[in-house]
Design a protein around this nucleic acid. Sequence first.
DNA 1: TTCCTGACTTGGTGATAGTTAG
DNA 2: CTAACTATCACCAAGTCAGGAA
Length: 883
Amino acid sequence: MAVQTSTKPNVYEDEDDEPLVFKRCSTKSKPNQLNAEAKKIPAQRQVGQPGKQVSEHCSSNGLNSSVQKGKMVPSTKSPPVKSPLASPKASTSSAGASAVSNSKASTSSRASPVPKSPPSTTLDGHSKRLAEQNKSTTIKKEINSIEHPAQGNSDSEDEKPIGARLGKVKPSEDSDDDKPLSSRIAPKSKVGISGSHPYDSKERKPVVSKVQKNGSSTTDKGKAPSVVSSKRPLDKANPSENSSAKRLKVSDSSTSVKNKAVAAKQEPKEEDDDDDFIPISQRSKKVASDSKSSLTKQTVTKVGSFSIKKTIKKSQKASKFTKYSKSTTKPPSSNDGQTKWTTLEHNGVIFPPPYKPHGIKMLYNGKPVTLTPEQEEVATMYAVMKDTDYVQKETFRKNFWADWHKLLGKNHVIQKLDACDFTPIYDWYQNEKEKKKQMSTEEKKALKEEKLKQEEKYMWARVDGNQEKVGNFRVEPPGLFRGRGEHPKSGKLKRRICPSDVTINIGKKAPIPECPIPGESWKEVRHDNTVTWLAFWNDPINPREFKYVFLAPSSNLKGLSDMQKYEKARRLKDHIGKIRASYTKDFTSKDVTKRQIAVATYLIDKLALRAGNEKDDDEADTVGCCTLKVENVKAIPPNSLEFNFLGKDSIRYENTVEVETPVYKAIIQFQSGKRGSDDLFDMLDTSRLNAHLKNVMDGLTAKVFRTYNASITLDDILNKKTKDGDLSEKLVVYQHANKEVAIICNHQRTVSKTHSAQMSKLTEKIDDLQVIVKDLKIDLDRAKKGKPPLKDADGKQKKNLTPEALERKIAQTNAKIEKMELDMRTKEDLKTVALGTSKINYLDPRITVAWCKRHEVPIEKIFNKSLLAKFSWAMPVEPDFRF
DNA sequence: TTCCTGACTTGGTGATAGTTAG
DNA sequence: CTAACTATCACCAAGTCAGGAA
């Protein structure tokens, strides 16, 4: 087991001991210890404390990390010119820049073979190539898209209690600028547990209550939010950076396609990767060897990396990763600047089936009403929503009525919604649902197959010769608009989309998809290779907006852009010290705009707030950083700020943080003389802010900070907290890190309806087990004295067991109890935290993959099937990769 | 400069497929 | 084998941000 770990452990450990620079403050709430500790760690960090600054600085430029890694290129500094080309930072390049693959050239061959059906099988080894590519971060890698065969991962393990270990984690400390500043955001109020007794046991932590959605909440809001302290030393700016910052106007790396082309050229040998045709079974061998070689190669370059070959096991493991990397065929075409593809074939989109009238009559003033199919369709949409809270909302009903009334006509019997009784339709619907549920497995299966058969042709596209999965090829069916929060348009009828609403985008030489509805035709057919959409139509609710059909996340196109996103965030690491120094300096600038930019940037960096674009009146009233209102922030002496606002999706953001005094003062100034509903940052909007950011780092925008803070936090926690231990303990560490990121990003979910019931059930079970333990102890005592055990509850005589056997049983039961308690704590802890969002969008998968490789954690334990497909580009990463 | 359009990423939820406990 | 859960996925809403028109 200890495989690779060998090298690293020490490193990390050391870190722990280092002085921390940032530390979190404790939350106010007093969680029980476990929590508290755990939470603290990540959650709140103080931004710099004075004394420690030094270290901070250093690290800031990533040095730290690089050092640790040993390798990853110290170079952070890349030449000032960021090159359009490669965005990648120099650092990566070390390995070899060489390998970029590019591609177009090779393309053709591979592609063809791929059958239309999803290729399920290929596994393969392109890893090598990929690996190299990775190293060089050059953008263009080829990502191939093929689907992976079933991977069966069988590992089953699963589930260990997650929370288990949290308690043990020690508070971390971080030091560097690199580290995320953020602090904890989530408000922590504590809530009591609902059920009867709380779970119990030892430490119970108060539950954190989260925020509620839509503001309504409330619940506990009063509680104490956590406070973060932040202080970052001012001094730090790095001189050097400035120059680079200036950047010439090169295009931003992300777009840098052009370069890529050049780079691409190289693609050496990878050709052999194609094993697409080899049966899987045979492939495995090959894979292993490939991977090995690739790894080896890497090893060479970098000193410290662990060598794979050490054990067989290892190689097997490696193969696991390679199996998920795409095997594909050709690399994506290189783009030059704008080009996203050279050839594109697909079959268009599929439309929902026409409405089938059911003929059930609803009641109006208690009397049945006959409706036309169109009217009935809309009535049914509403009827079906009877038990959702949408229909409780005034806006929803009003909008629905307006649209439906129009359909009914002025002289219809139905004149007002309140006198309508949709129950008959509702009941009919419930009944249909029930019937469906009752169908036999075979029937269900047949139905599913039927559907699959119809949709199959729409599921795949061929992009530059590669077979790629299409994301959303189904046109949205008509329905009532379900806006989130207090959306002014919620309840409006979303009309049916027809082919004449749809614009298709396809390669010039590709056959134009046949319109699936006889007699109708597409609105337009374009051949625009500067965009990635396959089709779009105007949103019926807001005609100036569009609904697009894109490729699935597992596609090369998406994978490439995903990777570029993370590379950009990694670049921020090299500039963050300078950026922080610069905005710190501007907190006291005489120029109000400058001061606002500085404070806004600080909030975005420290709290991971979203940029906050302006919104129209016909959208829900939510805000982001630039659109914060005076009333959303409350200054709490001596230097804390209490935030409370509705953010994206009308999710409430509640957090109290300690900020640096100049920030605190600046906020008070920005608020003075304004009404609560006025903009806090009146001189600012997102484009101004982003324009400023762009001056500091090429391609930098507000959202990059979210990605950066999320990923660096994961990398940091993972590397500091992972200890040797069994798999489940490692998974707990991962989950803990993931949770911290989710908290920073304020990713919430609603508490499941059955949550409290589940908790009390668990409590009950634990109580039962405790009774059992008690009885066992009595029996043990008796057994020691040679007496027979007591009768059981039914009055039956229990089996006579030896004291040893009884002791074993007691131990087992206690272990069970402990595990359950842990599960409960974890469950309670995560009841309002959504871990998935950050995994999908913010955490550089290479951090996870590398960590898995280092610690021998099967990647399938962390990434599910879709994530594995989406992140296939990250699978070849070197084990010592650090964000 | 500001406004508007267009393209693409990010996000929460409910239905469903898959698992596990009883 | 069924009930109870859980994990996953499809769905589609809601953001971000670039770039061009006004």
